[in-house]
Amino acid sequence: MKHTLIHLNSSPYSSLACKEGLDLALVLATFEQPVDLCLSGAALSILTSEQSPTIEQGKNLHKLLDGLEFYDIENIFIEKDSSWANTETSWQGVTSLDKIQWQAMFSDYQQVFRF
């Protein structure tokens, strides 16, 4: 079975990319395929709590983070020292990797898809 990494790097509010990347992760998980997530760049803003987007601004993808456990998606990686990491207003379920671990991570998967 292929282990998949979904890499989100786009802002959740500037396009549908994050939403559609997460949809793919949920479907993979629904089909019992092992899938992990990693976040970088503008996608890190998903982690910020107390988001309340209006319907014009888009869906609140932050809310989905707490639901990932029901899909058996357990690993959400970020790179340590990312500006959103480890702040009090940030979602706590992430695993921070140092630079070397972060770079090595991409080789741990049979397939990586970027959104």
């Binding site: 292929k2 998949t4 949809d23 793919l24 479907v27 993979l28 395929q33 397939q111 898809f113 970027r114």
Partner: peptide, 20 residues
């Protein structure tokens, strides 16, 4: 087709190549 078709392709082919 649903994303399930993509998942099926993933598990029945050697590699998936993404173009973005």
């Amino acid at each position: 087709e649903g994303l399930g078709t993509l998942v099926d392709l993933m598990s029945t082919t050697n590699k998936v190549i993404q173009f973005r």
